[in-house]
Design a protein around this nucleic acid. Sequence first.
DNA 1: GTCAGGTGAGAGACCGATCTCACATGAATA
DNA 2: TATTCATGTGAGATCGGTCTCTCACCTGAC
Lengths: 351, 351
Amino acid sequence: MEGDGPPFAGKRAVTIKDVAAVAEVSRATAARALNGYGYVGGAAAERVREAAERLGYRGNRIAQALRQGQMPIIGFVPGDIQNPFFARIAHDVDIELRRSRRSLLIASSEEDPQQEREILDNLRALNVRGMIVAPASGEDNPHLVRMVREGMPLVLIDRVVAGVPCDSITVDNEGGAHEAVGYLVANGHRRIALIHDGSRIATARERLAGYARCLTENGIAVEERLIAVSQSTVEHAIDATIRLFSQPERPTALFTVDSLMTTGALLALRSMGLSIPQDVSLVGFDDFDLATFTDPQITVVAQPVAQIGPLAVKMLLDRIRGSEEPPRSKRFATRLIVRGSVAHPDFGRHR
Amino acid sequence: MEGDGPPFAGKRAVTIKDVAAVAEVSRATAARALNGYGYVGGAAAERVREAAERLGYRGNRIAQALRQGQMPIIGFVPGDIQNPFFARIAHDVDIELRRSRRSLLIASSEEDPQQEREILDNLRALNVRGMIVAPASGEDNPHLVRMVREGMPLVLIDRVVAGVPCDSITVDNEGGAHEAVGYLVANGHRRIALIHDGSRIATARERLAGYARCLTENGIAVEERLIAVSQSTVEHAIDATIRLFSQPERPTALFTVDSLMTTGALLALRSMGLSIPQDVSLVGFDDFDLATFTDPQITVVAQPVAQIGPLAVKMLLDRIRGSEEPPRSKRFATRLIVRGSVAHPDFGRHR
DNA sequence: GTCAGGTGAGAGACCGATCTCACATGAATA
DNA sequence: TATTCATGTGAGATCGGTCTCTCACCTGAC
């Protein structure tokens, strides 16, 4: 160790070679001592531990990962971190993973299939151990199929995707929507509007299907003009709501397929001077804080958010540990939480 | 780390060696062709590109990172991803970073200094290029100081920390709190309660200071019994609110230091049958969706959230690119948004 | 006294990509 | 004709660990 760095020697990280040198053993012995495998003499082990401690040796995870073939990192690809639904799941996943000393890398696809593909390619190049993905598109996902084929542990959440042989966790969207719309019909509504976010996302399609099936079963025609497509943001939902409720024959009820849209609908209805439930009844998919703060509180279809993250991690870790079982898919039931945003359409007539 | 199953779960990935073999050149030439440096013949370059394309070569970022000395990853350590304030920042940071082809690794400290230290050690072992951290403690942060000394680019956000020589972005917490409390005083309040989350977090301490200074300036005594300490969760804030408002001489106004606490206070006051602003006036720090959905809407001190993420990334990238300027710290002003949750304390007297 | 087997430790291969260096060409220049 | 010089290419070192292989030593057994 001669002719080494000038004064600012603190810059270069401590490597196992440095530790070995100080402990006066070979790199191999130092590694054995630090990782506790193979034969190491008590004295040597002690010297190595001491040297590592003194030098502040931390190991280089990149080098380890290169040798081992992967990083102790799990990728999480939500549609949008800002959506409280995904934020909650990210939080739960993070906590679960920390227990097994893995890190979480979050990258949002912004609901863009192209961006999702890039992110997944990136994660793959990083050799992450596995991924939890909320696929941005329900159709045609060759990149997902290829990843699974290549052996990347993968758990899909929130949205079904046909033809990708991997574990998945979803919610009974069709049933939940059916129940919500059924509740509106039972309250006497027949002109029930829907705002959803395009049929590309499986979730939206299923909720749309539940809506349509319920109407049909009740002998109500599914009308184009009552169905608005909007991106899943508060702003777009405001526009969509205004469009729906500016029609001559106004809908008497509205069903929104996620919490951001429900928020947008609330704002739009308020700005149009329509009150809930006198003028319009409202049911939203996905429960959220705000729903209990409005007056009246909003009736919603609740999803078991708290269970999704932990289950996703469990499934993923099983795969990482080598489980070869056929793909499991868990579908959670939803629960209609009746609050005060639905009334009979004649309720407000006499105003 | 433990029990990780079979060594090789997937098929062997395509390496540059494979590409070189197919293109019938050496690894060196293949690398040159793919990365565009040094001299490469046109024909060879073409063959390499073609082979890479055909084999689906993706490069191994870990190997690159080992060679280069770091990962193209930025670490983000918020207090809690579920807090919309941090979720928003995470989202903005993610978008900014994607532009420079870096990934974002998010790991929440859960406001625990010990956990923060572990996370930072982990990130350091991963050789990330830089970090954006909302430090969990304002006092005594030797680990942060050491990181900066060792040359890790670091930007602290939301909270000041004394003695860490690095860039930081904060908000004028003291001034914002002062303005909020001043507004309550101007409306005739003298028994103004405060809920904050312990003095360990710098933000809380500053907001407390602003509260105290304003009272003192107005000749009002700062009373212990009007100040409640609570963790920053909705549930804890509910308890704290109930404690404050169960006292014989009830406060006439309440100031809460973050949006989760404001939410908790709203719930608690409602459950106690106290209405806003007739029975209690309320001002919260940090604007949030819910604040405009309540009736009346909540008066808040708004922070320029949208500016924090992009600025943090800009500062960090400057450092990563080698800027040696003295640490900058940006402190944003806050803005009091007056809505309907404050009234004169006598307003509700005649009820 | 020799040999098997347990124990301890070092040399060196390896992971995949990058980069330096040396070595070829062939053309242009002295 | 001899000598530069610009190009193109490959061998091999390197990054920091991990792990196999080999060897040396020591003990106890036959």
